[in-house]
Amino acid sequence: MSSGGGKPADGAAAPHYHGHRDRLRARFSEAGADALPDYELLELLLFRSIPQRDVKPLAKELVQRFGSFAEVLGAPAQRLTEVKGVGEGVALDLKIVEAAMLRMARGAIAKRPLLSSWSSVIDYCRMAMAFAEREQFRILFLDKKNLLIADEVQQTGTVDHTPVYPREVVRRALELSATALILVHNHPSGDPNPSQADIRMTRELVEIARPLGIVIHDHVIVGRDGHASFKGLALI
């Protein structure tokens, strides 16, 4: 793809944004991503997708509409294309970047005991679910060494409810020979605090699983505003 630098072959002056692109790339190279606000990091991605246009206004609009760099990447492709200037190709490029980040985050927890890599578990769960527009109920199935056997989304619901069937969860754990589970779901509202329904379902699942030798290590709720741990809140 075009790098966006230099002058056109006919000798005409390069568009004004070419110099901006070079300066922004240089700042990223010298100071790293932490030195850039969200919209500038997003600009760096959009340079490749939209080489012939100034993308600074578009990057700012995307961050303003969705809230943050992470929320732009986590937004459904259909909602991204509602923003003027974002076509299907640009939306696909952003979703590819999101998929790559999620693959890296999952790799960080795949081959190590999850309870000793808790911050990586939280990072992965937030990246995978925190910005989803509907509730999802995810289960991390673990073996006796607390290594990950499987990572499955069991249910997808509405904006404020996901049906969970504890006996189905336990049945799946037995099929996988899992001895421990970490439950995860998201609150699209952003507030990660558990509801009374969340608490009742979790305690019912703990009671059903315990006689079968299956431990519920934690139930984590993720949202835009952070996360909540049932274990940390002494709810299980």
Rank of each mutant, 00 (worst) to 15 (best):
Q52I: 00
Q52S: 15
Q52V: 01
Q52K: 12
Q52C: 07
D54G: 05
D54N: 15
D54V: 02
K56A: 15
P57A: 12
L58V: 09
L58K: 10
L58R: 13
L58D: 11
L58C: 12
A59T: 09
A59W: 10
A59D: 07
K60F: 08
E61Q: 14
E61N: 11
L62S: 08
L62G: 08
L62H: 13
V63Q: 12
V63K: 13
F66S: 15
G67K: 14
A70L: 06
E71C: 11
V72S: 13
L73H: 10
G74R: 08
A75R: 10
P76H: 10
P76Q: 04
A77E: 07
A77S: 15
Q78T: 05
L80F: 00
T81S: 11
T81C: 05
T81D: 01
E82I: 00
V83E: 06
V83I: 14
V83S: 05
G85Y: 02
V86E: 02
V86P: 02
V86Q: 07
V86M: 04
V86S: 08
G87F: 02
E88C: 01
V90C: 06
V90Y: 03
V90R: 07
V90N: 10
A91T: 11
A91H: 07
L92I: 03
D93R: 09
L94K: 09
K95P: 00
I96E: 07
I96A: 04
I96D: 05
I96C: 02
V97G: 04
E98K: 14
A100V: 04
L102P: 00
R103Y: 00
R103C: 01
A105R: 11
R106L: 12
G107F: 02
G107Y: 03
A108F: 02
A110S: 13
A110L: 06
A110K: 08
A110T: 06
K111F: 06
R112H: 10
P113A: 12
P113M: 08
P113L: 06
P113F: 09
L115G: 10
L115H: 04
S116R: 10
S116A: 07
S117V: 03
S117R: 12
S119H: 10
V121Y: 01
V121M: 10
I122K: 09
I122G: 04
I122T: 12
D123W: 06
D123M: 06
D123K: 13
D123V: 01
Y124W: 12
C125W: 00
R126N: 03
R126L: 08
M127G: 15
A128C: 04
A130L: 05
A130M: 08
A132R: 15
A132I: 00
A132P: 03
E133F: 05
Q136R: 15
F137D: 07
R138N: 13
I139T: 15
L140F: 11
L140W: 13
L142N: 11
D143M: 07
D143N: 15
K145E: 12
K145P: 00
K145S: 14
K145C: 02
N146C: 02
L147K: 08
A150E: 11
A150L: 06
E152V: 11
V153H: 07
Q154E: 07
Q155L: 01
T156P: 00
T156M: 12
T156R: 15
T156D: 03
G157I: 00
D160S: 12
H161P: 01
H161M: 08
T162P: 08
T162C: 14
T162G: 13
P163M: 05
V164I: 10
V164A: 08
Y165S: 08
Y165I: 13
Y165F: 14
Y165C: 02
R167V: 03
V169N: 11
